[in-house]
Design a protein around this nucleic acid. Structure first.
Lengths: 352, 352
DNA sequence: ATTAGCACTCGGTTTAAACGAGTGCTAATA
DNA sequence: TATTAGCACTCGTTTAAACCGAGTGCTAAT
């Protein structure tokens, strides 16, 4: 049979299973997969020649490519995409959890929210053997539990916001007028009374406006509001936690010139990752970006599996794993998915 | 003259200047320094042969070595040590600052203490072009400014300690008995009243004991003390900030197998760095560790320049730069020294 | 004490050959 | 028609040999 170029079309069963096995093989070994040894290793009951024909078809449909003539095949981004999609199709989102659940306790034992982020990323990177990233919750959805003002010096006030999740967010504010210790107590009480229970975005949107018009027994009410507004309006951006870059350095192909540069830009310019993860927040559940799909100029040959997490039913942050395109998706996808759920559960419980 | 093996002895002037120039050359180029080109480049008015003789002497005194026969010379750790010491001898610790002072403002503008650590390490790594590390202040020397208790749930209390430097240290504490909102206010007032102005180590050493015996108007005084003691006793360890590992990856010799492993252990096992920096706290001022002097099994071919910093006149933390043995000490030493001073100044001012 | 001269070393680079895993194509086969 | 055996060909990788050049140590002359 003379092989003619094949347009993209649904794969038949045999092609699909070959593709799947081939990608699996490549993910494990990192070497281009050739027909002879492949057929043997996976006990396909076809000859190498037939395998070559199938590979040829898969190649002309752009699922595979050759790094150079007369080498075996490696998957293209499209190939990986097929692989990951069929993983996702068959993935039982309810199960899986049991296998990993040991770590769950370690996370849940952590009480200080800030540490949770470290623990989660550390766990995720060590479990996945790649690099883990996490974007801390969007500030505007956090719910105020308590506000405490502490005088720090002349005209300097430390504004401490305690969230319902137990996060403690301090902010130094400079005021022009003098404020007495008694004022501080009054302000703390007033602001806690009025703002607790509301999410920051609500406070910014409407609560402040309402309070300014309402009457209050708090002396200097307006000043209290000024301080609060000042502090809250320039609260912190979500922070990016990265952990486990060292894992990536252990992967031989990542240490090669070109990839290393990708890595360097990722570490150096955190805004890149932040951009990617911020996008991920919008998608409920798992999201995979393979190779070029990452769509960041400086990032080449990397994939990213991410999951958004919620507080209550608001999507507020994301967590993920970065690795080479040749990533062990089969392991990473459930892991990330699971981690997202644990974080959601934890934060939601804390904010009750 | 037949060269005989030379015992270590004080270097004469010519030898010293050759050694100094040679190390400088090696630091800049990274290539073994050979006699011919070296004599030419640095306009020594001696012949290459004479230079070889000098080099031979320096080698037999272990200031230099050859990576292999018939190659030029490179410095040994002892050589670097000589170089750094004479740098330090001639180093005007009062001056230098002016050159770098631009960044000072950027740091001092930072109000949130936690961010200062990030800013300092980032600045230090980007200025030095190596990796920067910083150990946050030892907790036991921080002075209490204010204590606030916030009820978080059944039997759960958030204990917030505000230090005089403006650091906000929250800690979740679980108590057995029920605590009312009013208790909280009373406790906060009582603890603030009694503990503010004292350093944590004083509180742990004696204040608690004293308070337990004294009478107080605070109802449930003992419970308040229990909570405080619980929270303070297991407060956080100094944290380690690292920044700029990417800079090290840009140095070709660091990406080679062996060095890369060193690097990986450093990143992976932060306790190594912590150990080194903790030691550095004990030395007032600058400290250099060259190559083997680092004395950590897994760390090879790295040097570290560190400076301790103080709050008032207590040594509480350290900051430093890590790079290859072939580091630009001439640049790094003043930089680290200066950074240490700025941090000291800043923290001291904040804690007033 | 310095230096010119010279034989010698040895890592790095270049060149060439041999290797081997893999391919595409063709022709025979089920 | 789909599969397979056979074969020539490709091309990156490994191995070996040759060579280059920067550098050394030693010796003898200055």
């Amino acid at each position: 049979m003379v092989r003619e170029s094949v347009q993209t079309r649904p794969l038949n069963e045999r092609e699909a299973s070959v593709l799947q096995a081939l990608i699996y093989e490549y993910i494990t070994t990192g070497k281009p997969v050739g027909s002879r040894s492949f057929v043997q290793k996976y006990s396909f009951s076809i000859s190498p020649a037939t395998m070559r024909n199938i590979m040829f078809d898969l190649e002309s449909m752009e699922y595979l490519k050759q790094p150079h003539t007369s080498a075996g095949r490696i998957p293209t981004d499209i190939g990986y995409r097929f692989y990951v999609n069929s993983l996702l199709d068959n993935y039982d989102f309810s199960l899986k959890e049991r296998e990993i659940s040991v770590k769950e306790e370690a996370i849940k034992r952590e009480v200080q929210l800030d540490k949770i982020f470290s623990v989660v990323t550390r766990m995720l990177s060590s479990e996945s053997r790649y690099a883990a990233v996490m974007l801390t919750p969007r500030f505007d959805f956090t719910v105020v539990k308590r506000i405490v003002l502490v005088p720090m010096g002349i005209n300097e006030i430390l504004f401490i916001l305690v969230t319902r999740t137990g996060m403690v967010l301090p902010k130094k504010v400079t005021v022009s007028a003098n404020v007495t210790q008694d004022d501080m107590y009054a302000f703390s009480a007033y602001l806690t009374e009025e703002l607790s229970g509301y999410a920051v975005y609500e406070i910014m949107d409407s609560i402040f406006d309402r309070l300014r018009q309402e009457h209050s027994t708090c002396p200097n009410k307006d000043m209290a509001l000024d301080i609060a507004q000042l502090a809250i309006s320039d609260y912190e951006e979500p922070r990016l936690h990265i952990e486990g870059i060292e894992n990536l350095l252990k992967i031989p192909e990542m240490v090669e010139e070109e990839r290393l540069n990708s890595l360097l830009s990722i570490i150096e310019d955190k805004s890149i990752l932040k951009r990617i993860l911020e996008k991920a927040i919008e998608f409920e559940g798992i999201r995979t970006l393979i190779g070029e799909e990452v769509a960041e100029e400086k990032v080449k040959g990397c994939s990213m599996v991410s999951a958004s997490y919620k507080i209550g039913n608001k999507l507020v942050g994301a967590v993920g794993v970065i690795g080479p395109t040749r990533m062990d998706y089969e392991k990473v996808v459930p892991l990330v998915d699971y981690t997202g759920r644990v974080v959601t559960e934890l934060l939601t419980k804390m904010s009750k």
